[in-house]
Design a protein around this nucleic acid. Structure first.
Lengths: 189, 189
DNA sequence: ACCTGAACACCGTTCAAGT
DNA sequence: ACCTGAACACCGTTCAAGT
């Protein structure tokens, strides 16, 4: 199920307009960040402002829709890692993926996690569930500190993303490494 | 020396206007966050928009001026802690102070650290110097990991501030504790 | 030297009118 | 049922005119 799924199908032209707006918004957020002009997005998509607002009543709704499949992929990546890597590495790898997600679109990914409100499909719940899976796996294997919650993991990583959006990715990785030292339990080998 | 010091003294009315704007901006940022309307600040201060822009050509300039003395106090707190607490506790205490700073004014404190550009007096340099002092002290005493840079410390703490501005302070402290586990060297006692 | 405030281009948002 | 686009209130920013 995709982020944009609604109760019953849209009329053909409505669906097309929605997709157009979404495609343009994707580019706009990538280029100009989360505060890109909505009117300009509507214009570039060839629709009136009203049409944009009909489909996405608030800016956050549009942001959530843009991030939707990215978040789905992020959740899927958790299960992928759990079957292809040892638990500790799976957790570390997923945190790396979350970090990258947080940095996308000039920090839009991280910003959405930093604000409590949820829109459309529940981004928070999806990410939290994925975090719980990788963290739980690592904890049961004794590879991660047992007193950690998935919110701890998420907020630490999102924090790194937000404090380094402007800088180079190398800084992000460096900081993630430091946090991992507090999260992972040293392998006695 | 205060943040607002300029080369030569202002005319009396100019100085008064500047102070008025600054006082109103302080309230506005505290209430509405870093994006508070500049026009409204000018109006509430009883000056025209042009006057505000004359004194603070960009929003960041105004933000820096508002945060100025807070940053001075934060830097002073470093030295205070270094003389009243053992090195490891001084570092931890200062990081706590930095965390609180990052959360002020709806995250304005943290946001300014997350963007590279500097305005007016150099906020970054002031904070980095303070961080270097407490971190260096702790490292020389063997209380902190020797491979850490002051940027590591700052960005980790600022990240926590940014990812928890909306939530309760308890979450911030919790996450700071986790980061401290990676920063401090366990006391063998 | 400094202030004022009208003016401009822009933004988000709404809503009557259309199809 | 959906779209359009004019309209409104607002914002940041500038600048000629004043003192």
């Amino acid at each position: 199920m995709t982020a944009g799924d609604t109760a019953r199908p849209l009329r053909a032209d409505a669906r097309r307009n929605r997709d157009r707006v979404l495609a343009v918004a994707r580019e706009a957020f990538a280029e100009e960040g989360p505060d890109a002009s909505l009117n300009e997005i509507a214009q570039r998509a060839g629709v009136g402002p009203g049409t944009l607002y009909r489909h996405f009543p608030t800016r956050r709704t549009l942001q959530a829709a843009v991030l939707g499949d990215r978040i789905q992929r992020l959740a899927g990546r958790a299960d992928e890692l759990l079957t292809t890597a040892p638990p500790g590495e799976a957790l570390a790898g997923w945190m790396r993926a979350l970090l990258e997600h947080g940095r996308t679109d000039h920090g839009l990914g991280g910003a959405m996690m930093a604000e409590p409100l949820d829109v459309g499909f529940d981004c928070h719940a999806t990410i939290r569930a994925a975090a719980e899976r990788v963290l739980g796996g690592a904890q049961r294997a004794g590879a991660a500190r047992p007193d950690l919650s998935c919110d701890d993991v998420i907020q630490l990583v999102v924090g790194i993303a937000l404090s380094t959006v402007q800088g180079d990715p190398g800084r992000s990785e460096r900081l993630l490494g430091l946090v991992l030292d507090a999260v992972l339990v040293r392998d006695p080998g």
